[in-house]
Design a binder for these strands. Structure first.
Lengths: 205, 205
DNA sequence: TTTTTTATTGAACATTGTTCATTATTGTGC
DNA sequence: GCACAATAATGAACAATGTTCAATAAAAAA
């Protein structure tokens, strides 16, 4: 068979992505395949390759969308007046935690997918990640200001990255199922609070 | 063809594991396959399934070995007399960091591999992970003792898990290549120091 | 209406994990 | 030593994967 006009190029683009995301969410990242997507939208597998360069390309696009979701949620956070920097940081961490819990598989895709050797992530992808750090850096800078601690912009950048990576690690361990949790006292939410309370207190000291 | 006596059962076991590890280390986790292993040791692919239940089974065994290596390195750490708890924690984190750097792909396998739904990790695997926490908990308990901070055993368990997960997250972000590092000031080693210094100071306060 | 362009297909290829009847070799009982 | 039984290794087979590409049918242009 051949050319149809059921969908515009853009519609197909979107159709493939949303279908892929549905599969990832409902059946797991490992269940994603070109044939499964195409079968579900009523096209052949080859069509996927008409729209995306490769499966890797599609996955990177999906991952970029995950970053967009988190960024928009952080952006729509009620403004920080009257909130301590510590509370601001906790609010941001909560958004991250929430995303991990409600989109476990998509988050797994985001951080475990790797491009084959030689290929590298598109620029706008890394830009999105960098953007995620900005609000955290700001909160830490205002922490320095508040507590008359000497801390440069460089220190704030380092602290922001450290804190973010740590939150990420807590989510990872929590979700991987590889750490025996013993009790609910050691779930991700409690660990993140423990981390931020101590880390912030430590930065002050 | 058929039965040979080139290797005992145990030798074959070991031969398969060491070959698989070589492939992971040299060619990446993604390059690991039953046919590649078997081809390299001069057996057919089916033989792998004579010795291991599945590829997953083999990978879990390899991952358990990674845990063993880290555990033995932590165990052989010079004893903690005259060292502050903070230094002890840094020494342990350094071991972890070192493993990640020298066995990047094996570490990636350890934390990204997942069993198919329904299957769960063997008990001795989770036991090994729990064992890794013990020295960290001890260091944190002695931190409490040293600085007359009130801290229960439960608090120490939570703090130990939190700190360990955080170090893990820093390594993950560092090696995933997804975080644009901007400068070498934000490499894993600096971030871990930043984390432990602040976290420990915070626990004291 | 004819021609050109182009979107879609389906067959094909290489590679994956996994199973299993077949077979050659080893160990056992006489 | 010989027949027999136990078993380890095989290689073909199956389903599924990503990916490519000539063939083709429909839409757009002439």
């Amino acid at each position: 068979m051949a050319r149809r006009s059921d969908h515009t190029r853009n519609e197909l683009h979107e159709l493939i992505i949303t279908t892929a995301i549905r599969i990832i969410d409902d059946e797991g990242f490992a269940a994603l395949s070109a044939r499964k997507i195409s079968g579900e939208i009523g096209y052949s597998a080859g069509t996927i390759y008409n729209v995306y360069k490769s499966m890797d390309d599609l996955i990177v696009t999906i991952n970029a969308r995950s970053l967009d979701i988190m960024a928009s949620q952080i952006k729509s956070l009620p403004h920080s007046v009257g909130q301590t920097p510590c509370d601001q940081l906790k609010a941001m961490a909560k958004i991250y935690l929430n995303f991990v819990h409600s989109h476990k598989e998509r988050w797994f895709a985001l951080f475990t997918h790797r491009l084959p050797a030689g290929h590298s992530l598109p620029d706008d992808f890394t830009t999105k990640i960098t953007a995620l750090f900005a609000p955290i850096e700001r909160a830490i800078l205002s922490l320095y200001a508040e507590s008359s601690t000497t801390g440069s912009s460089k220190d704030a950048k380092l602290a922001a990255r450290t804190l973010w990576a740590s939150v990420h690690g807590i989510c990872f361990i929590d979700q991987s199922g590889k750490m025996p949790l013993v009790s609910t006292q050691y779930d991700a939410s409690n660990m993140v609070n423990c981390l931020i309370d101590s880390f912030v207190a430590g930065l002050r000291a």
